[in-house]
């Protein structure tokens, strides 16, 4: 009798443990999630392979792009977020191909693909160790996704467990400029964001 009781108890215990494990098992995206280093604006945030600092984040309803004397206007159903900063590779030449805007509620927006290639955004450049370089990131997001947004930068979207830097921006979502112009320059830095402030 005792023996049967013991087996039943052992079985119940095993079932409980298994159920608990099933409930608490992490998602695949959690297991393979990137290794995050985070920080705020105007700070140099270091990941193991690269460092990034952001010094300007501006929001506008309309984006004008001026390349070689020609100007084109880009409208949006939301707003444009224009972020500038500096990135540097630490040990070996690398590219930063993935840039995302993570809204306060966890929704992701990728770098816009609408700007002409003559405006070189972050993914277009190679970063050499010891040579910091200005970066430009332009996002198109709904107005409600602006406040509390975070810029997420990684070498690639495809490598699990790779470095990722998250920088929480200081935009409130209230200070929206009517229009911003990105002008392509002949020399460094390759662009200027206007009006200057």
């Amino acid at each position: 009798m005792m023996r049967i009781m013991r087996s039943v108890l052992a079985l119940l215990f095993a079932a409980a443990v298994l159920y608990g494990m099933q409930l608490t098992r992490p998602l695949y995206s959690d297991i393979t999630s990137p290794i995050v280093s985070s920080g705020g604006m105007n700070k140099r945030v270091q990941a193991s392979a690269f460092a990034l600092s952001l010094d300007s984040a501006r929001v506008a309803r309309v984006l004008n792009v001026e390349t070689f004397g020609k100007s084109k206007t880009y409208t949006s159903s939301g707003v444009w977020v224009v972020v500038e900063g500096e990135a540097e590779a630490k040990f070996e030449t690398l590219r930063l191909t993935s840039g995302e805007w993570l809204s306060g509620s966890g929704i992701r927006y990728v770098l816009t693909g609408r700007l002409p290639a003559t405006i070189e955004m972050m993914p277009g450049d190679a970063y050499q160790p010891g040579l910091p370089r200005r970066v430009l990131l332009v996002f198109e997001v709904p107005e409600e996704a602006v406040a509390g947004g975070t810029v997420v930068v990684a070498r690639t979207k495809l490598l699990p467990l790779d470095d990722e830097i998250r920088i929480t921006t200081d935009v409130s979502g209230k200070d929206i400029e009517p229009a911003i112009t990105i002008r392509r320059n002949e020399e460094r830095p390759p662009w200027t964001v206007l009006p200057q402030r």
């Binding site: 040990f91 070996e92 030449t93 190679a126 050499q128 160790p129 010891g130």
Partner: peptide, 9 residues
């Protein structure tokens, strides 16, 4: 110091 550069394009 162990830094490594790739050729530029």
């Amino acid at each position: 110091s162990g830094r490594e550069w790739q050729p530029t394009l």
